[in-house]
């Protein structure tokens, strides 16, 4: 009998738990009510003797059980090793639902695990519910964000990846007496066919955290050049905010992928979102329309971005932004 909601606990290179793990814990705790108080569980793969560092965070965020695996090879994420071992662990735990954050790592490992378990997987969900048959109803945008589809799985565990920023972490007053269970899985000879030769940390993600920033200044195709984005950065600096980008701008190489807001990027809801030279295709707006206040600057008065904006300025961002910086 499959039981419980299992969450993949992604550990970053700098040894912290990815925030999406706690967001999923928040939603899982709500869903568990509809599943006869099903336990909320985590699966985490760690370097030896690291679990103590994370115990408090798992308890505060309401996990009932944390299954962990230790190996000196687990410091660096490698798809082949991680997925092979995770598959065995999930078979042992036998959960009813298995949720994974739709980060790049999550989207890399989830389909590998689900297909090895011969079960279904719904990608990059923006809503999770339990239906009248107590099944996971996972809703996701498709067709560039224009169509929403609710997907069910005939098999177990019912798996979904969930877009970061979709749910809120649980309130910290619900501290749980979490049970930590070390799994012993015969890892055999775990030699990876993948070798990481080099890693360059993006400066963007350190200084420019669009996930947690209250103010985002975002640019699209209309910003045209890297200089255009430097202008956005100046405005963001002045406001104490971060720089975001549309998919087109990222594809044009004007901004890095972790700045990308929208369907294949991040979902954000800052207090203030300033959209500069962004036309407002659904692909983008799906990731930012929940912002408290939206200001749009665009040369085209008919640009769809104005339909979701609170304030609009029809004009060239290259001219407007320097003037704006001066006034602030």
């Amino acid at each position: 009998m499959n039981k419980g909601i299992l969450i993949w606990a992604e550990i970053s290179r700098d040894d912290y738990v990815n925030p999406v793990v706690f967001e999923l814990a928040g939603r899982a705790a709500e869903l568990s009510g509809a599943l006869d108080e099903s336990p909320v569980m985590a699966l985490v793969m760690l370097k030896p003797e690291m679990i103590d560092k994370y115990k408090e965070a798992f308890s505060i965020n309401g996990f009932d059980k944390v299954y962990y695996l230790e190996n000196s090879e687990f410091g660096e994420y490698k798809t082949d090793i991680f997925s092979k071992i995770a598959v065995e662990a999930v078979k042992d735990i036998n959960p009813e639902i298995f949720l994974i954050g739709a980060t790049n790592q999550g989207r890399d490992i989830a389909p590998r695990i689900s297909s090895a378990l011969n079960t279904g997987l719904t990608a990059d969900c923006t809503a999770l519910d339990i239906n009248e048959n107590k099944k996971l109803a996972a809703t996701r945008p498709t067709f560039g964000g224009q169509l929403m589809a609710t997907i069910l799985s005939k098999t177990f565990p019912q798996m979904a990846t969930v877009r970061p920023g979709t749910f809120k972490a649980p309130k910290t007053d619900k501290r749980k007496e979490t049970e930590f269970i070390k799994l012993d899985i015969d890892t055999g000879d775990i030699k990876s066919k993948i070798e990481i030769l080099d890693f360059k940390k993006k400066i963007c993600s350190e200084l420019n955290d669009i996930d947690s920033s209250d103010i985002i200044v975002a640019g699209g195709r209309g910003m045209q050049t890297k200089e255009g984005f430097e202008l956005l950065k100046k405005l963001a600096d002045k406001l104490g905010g971060a720089v975001g980008a549309s998919r087109v701008a990222v594809e044009m190489g004007l901004a890095s992928q972790d700045c990308q807001v929208g369907q294949t990027g991040k979902t954000v809801s800052p207090k203030l979102y300033i959209a500069c030279g962004i036309s407002g295709a659904l692909q983008h707006t799906i990731g930012m329309e929940q912002s408290h206040k939206i200001i749009a600057i665009n040369t085209d008065p008919d640009a769809p971005i104005f339909q979701i904006a609170d304030y609009g300025y029809v004009g060239d961002a290259f001219e407007v932004i320097p003037q704006l910086i001066e006034k602030l």
Binding site: N118, T119, G120, L121, T122, N131, A137, P141, G145, Q146, L147, M148, A149, T150, I151, L152, S153, K154, T155, L282, T285, I286, E289, Q290, I294, I295, A296, I297, P301, F306, Q307, I308, A309, D310, Y311, G312, Y313, V314, G315, V320, Q323, L324, K327, L328
Partner: peptide, 28 residues
């Protein structure tokens, strides 16, 4: 296929009344 689409619906778009300005002070 282990999964199936149980329903599909058009994404809701949040429409607002945009207040246009052509004045930088107002924008600021």
């Amino acid at each position: 296929s282990p999964t199936f689409v149980s329903k599909a619906f058009r994404a809701k778009k949040r429409e607002k009344n945009c207040e246009f300005t052509d004045n930088i002070d107002k924008l600021a």
